[in-house]
Design a protein around this nucleic acid. Structure first.
Length: 281
DNA sequence: ATGGCAGAAGCATTCTGA
């Protein structure tokens, strides 16, 4: 089962590129971020023609997430919900559509578009840290329910200096600061694994290249789009790749898709049954 | 330190992103 994430930076502008990519790659689940469109304007039909079901949670101009899947998603939820931590106030996050979750093949798919934060001095940075704190509480609730998780999307955080083309230049800057990395690690809490790092230990692999300064041509990128999976799923993980080729398209998104392949041959497979073969982090 | 490039809204230019 192929599960992919892609910040497409406008579904309407990128539609033909997304369909082309889906025809080539044939993903089972594609999670999109920055769709930038209200739900009633989302181009659902082209995906349905390809045999996919579409779930959207969008707004005008900014943000917006979607889950596109061959198997219809169950228990679709939009935004944060079910958080019991009294310190969290989800009301303040309602106006920005950044999270959609659903059950597919017994796996809880959580598709996120984490706020960028602008700069460490900005109010938006505090919002980013608060949003990640709320996401941690949200994951706590999923863990309580015993959910098998695939948390994926645009995190706007490079987890380590290996994930930045010039870490010295961006040291303690936005997407690279210790505060953001700690906030992300507090979401993961060791219960979720970075699928990409199971296979690749070296630097030089990016999922985002700035539109400016010829960053893609110079391969000056960052790895900020991630797929995190429950430990229970790690024995089912066959691969995790970043497909940088769409970044070379005419009028590309500034992000590339990231994809995992899970070995779920039978939709009724009990994913709890062989837990003896975990990868080490 | 700043801008650079791109998309949306809307029709000139501003806001936002990363």
């Amino acid at each position: 089962m192929l599960v992919a994430t892609w910040n497409v930076n406008s579904i309407r502008t990128r539609l033909s590129q997304i369909l082309d990519w889906m025809n080539q790659v044939n993903p089972d689940i594609l999670c999109l971020q920055e769709t930038k469109v209200m739900d009633d304007s989302f181009p659902v039909e082209p995906f349905e023609k390809l045999g996919y079901s579409v779930e959207v949670y969008g707004q005008k101009s900014y943000n917006g997430v979607a889950i596109i899947s061959k198997i219809k998603a169950k228990n679709v939820k939009k935004g944060f919900y079910g958080i019991t931590d009294p310190d969290q106030n989800i009301e303040i996050f309602l106006d920005q559509k950044r999270l959609i979750s659903a059950e597919i093949n017994g796996i809880k798919i959580i598709n996120v578009y984490v706020p960028n934060g602008s700069s460490l001095q900005s109010n938006k940075f505090a919002y980013k840290i608060d949003w990640l704190s709320c996401l941690a509480s949200f994951l706590d609730e999923q863990e309580k329910k015993g959910e098998i998780i695939c948390l994926l999307g645009d995190f706007n955080v490079a987890p380590s200096n290996l994930d930045i083309h010039d870490p010295k230049k961006y040291e303690e800057g936005i997407m690279a600061s210790e505060i953001e990395r700690n906030a992300l690690n507090n979401v993961l809490k060791g219960r979720l694994i970075d699928a990409f790092r199971i296979f690749e230990k070296n630097t030089g692999h990016w999922s985002w290249w700035d539109y400016r300064n010829n960053a893609y041509e110079l391969n000056k990128g960052w790895r900020i789009d991630h797929i995190y999976i429950s430990k229970e799923l790690s024995s089912k993980l066959k691969s995790c790749v970043i497909d940088s080729s769409p970044r070379g398209n005419l009028r590309p998104s500034d992000h590339a898709p990231v994809m995992i392949d899970l070995n779920l041959n039978d939709i009724n497979v009990d994913i709890f049954e062989d837990e003896e073969n975990f990868f080490e982090i």
